[in-house]
Design a protein around this nucleic acid. Structure first.
Lengths: 249, 249
DNA sequence: AAGTGGTCTAGACCACGCC
DNA sequence: GCGTGGTCTAGACCACTTG
C-alpha cells in the first residue's frame, strides 16, 4: 500500500514500536544507521520520522537519536483516523447501529457545508457507534448524492464507511474539524444513554476528496466521559509538528 | 528573531499574506522562484511552506503553486498561541481579572501532572479571561515554584503570562492538550456568567520548557458559545500536515 | 571528543495540473 | 509539452547531547 519509500520506512518503524520491538524509552536507530539499512539518504528517513513525530510515537531532539515516547493514557489516536480503526487500535470492539439512511434534498445549512445548491440531493445517515457494546458516539453524516448512493449497497452496521468509500474510489484528501461542547438533546440522550442536558463533545467534520470537492459533512457527538481529544503542539514551526489525537478513557 | 533561513522565509510570506499583499486565492510564487529570490535551494523553501501549510494559510497540490487559502470563519488561530495574542489577532480587546495567586503545596494530582513530589511548592493562579470585556475563559494555572515565583512581581491583569515568562527565560518547547466537555460548576457559572450545568469546553494543558521539564499545568474552561476549536488534518502523512486552531465566534 | 539531529546545497526524476 | 510540487540523492556544516 505504501507507495513512497518514506512511507514504507514509517510503516516499518511504526510496526516495530506498536509490537514492542522498540519499547518506550528506547532510542530509534540514528538517521545515519537507518539510511544505511534502507540504502538511502537521510531525506526519506527524516520524512518518516516526521510522520512518527506527528503521530506522537517518537520525540526528537538535536544531538540524540529519536526516542520512543510513552503512550499517553489509552493509546492516543489521530482524530482523522476512522472511528472503526481507532477503536480496534485501542483494543476495543467497534460496533454500529444504523438508525436511518435516507436520500433527500439538502436544506440551506447542509448545502452550504457541502458547497452545493439547496434542493440538491444528499444522502443522510444517522448511526450510533459502540465500543464493546457501549454507546459512545452518535454520528449524523451527510454525503453528496454521487458518493452517498453507494452506501445503500452495504450493511452499514458492519462496514466502515470510510474504508468502504475509499475502496470505491472516494478517498479523502483533507478534513476540517470543529470541536465544541453542547448539551445533549432528546435524541442524543436516548441513544447515548445519558441525561438530556449532559455536556457532549461535538466534532463537526467536513471532508474533501482528492479532487478538492467537499463530499461529506458530519456532526459527531461523543460522550465526554468516554472520549477526549488530545493535541500536541511544538513551539517550533518545523516539519510535522502539530497534530491532534483522540483518546478513549 | 527568526534564526533559521526557512523561518525568515516563512515570516516574510506570512506577513505578505496577512497584509493582503497575497490575497486569498492567489498563487504563492513557485518554489523555484522563491529559491531564486532568496538565493537558496528548495529545501528551506519547502520547510517554510510546510510551516504555512500547518498554519492553514496555504494549501499545496502537486503540479500547482501553493495557493493562499480562504481564512476560516473568524480568523483561526493555533491553539498553542497565547490567549492574549489570539484575541488581538481576531481584532478583540483581551482582558484579565485575576481571582487568586497563591504559593502552596502541591496535592497528588498537581504533583503528578507537573512531575514533582506531592508537598513540593507550586504557584496557583486563577484568572478570568475577557474578550471585549465579556467573560470568555476561566483559567486555573499551576506552575512549579521556580517559574511561578516570578509571577508575584507583575500585574497579572495586564500582563500576558506566556509572554512574560518567555522574557524571563521560560519559553515553552511543546505542549500537550486534552479537550473534553464538562458541566459548569458553581465557580465557572458565576465567573463565566452562565447557568450551572452549562456545557463548557475544557482544555487541559501541560507545558514543557526547552530543557524538557514540565513547568506548567493548566485547566482552561471556555464558554462553548463563544469559542470553538478547529482542526485540520491531511490524509497524507507528509511534512507538517496536522494542526489545530482555535476560533472565536 | 565523538556522534547526532537540524539545517542547507545543488542537483535529479516523476506524477500531475494546466495550456 | 511545460512547469510545478513531491520525492529522492549525496554530500556539507553547525549546535547540541552524551560519554
Amino acid at each position: 500500500m505504501a507507495t513512497t519509500l518514506y512511507e514504507q520506512i514509517a510503516d516499518d518503524l511504526r510496526r516495530r514500536i506498536l509490537s514492542g520491538d522498540l519499547a518506550v524509552g528506547d532510542d530509534v536507530p540514528s538517521e545515519g544507521e537507518l539510511a544505511e539499512q534502507w540504502r538511502t539518504s537521510r531525506g526519506p528517513i527524516r520524512n518518516a520520522l516526521a510522520a512518527l513525530r506527528s503521530e506522537g510515537l517518537v520525540e526528537t531532539r538535536r544531538g540524540r537519536p529519536a526516542r520512543v515516547v510513552a503512550r499517553k493514557a489509552h493509546h492516543p489516536v489521530d482524530v482523522s483516523i476512522p472511528f472503526t480503526k481507532w477503536v480496534r487500535d485501542v483494543g476495543g470492539e467497534p460496533g454500529a447501529r444504523t438508525q436511518e439512511i435516507s436520500l433527500r434534498r439538502a436544506d440551506d445549512d447542509k448545502a452550504q457545508a457541502l458547497g452545493i445548491r439547496p434542493g440538491d440531493l444528499v444522502v443522510d445517515v444517522v448511526r450510533l457507534r459502540l465500543v464493546d457494546g457501549r454507546p459512545t458516539m452518535l454520528e449524523r453524516l451527510t454525503f453528496i448524492e454521487e458518493v452517498g448512493r453507494v452506501l445503500f449497497d452495504v450493511d452499514l452496521d458492519t462496514v466502515s464507511i470510510t474504508e468502504y468509500l475509499d475502496s470505491r474510489g472516494f478517498g479523502y484528501d483533507d478534513i476540517d474539524h470543529e470541536i465544541d461542547a453542547v448539551a445533549a438533546d432528546e435524541l442524543d440522550a436516548e441513544l447515548l444513554d445519558v441525561e438530556p442536558g449532559t455536556p457532549i463533545l461535538r466534532l463537526h467534520r467536513v471532508t474533501r476528496g482528492r479532487d478538492g470537492r467537499t463530499f461529506e459533512a458530519s456532526d459527531d457527538r461523543y460522550r465526554s466521559d468516554i472520549v477526549r481529544f488530545t493535541v500536541a503542539a511544538s513551539g517550533r514551526a518545523r516539519q510535522g509538528d502539530h497534530f491532534i489525537r483522540a483518546i478513549g478513557t
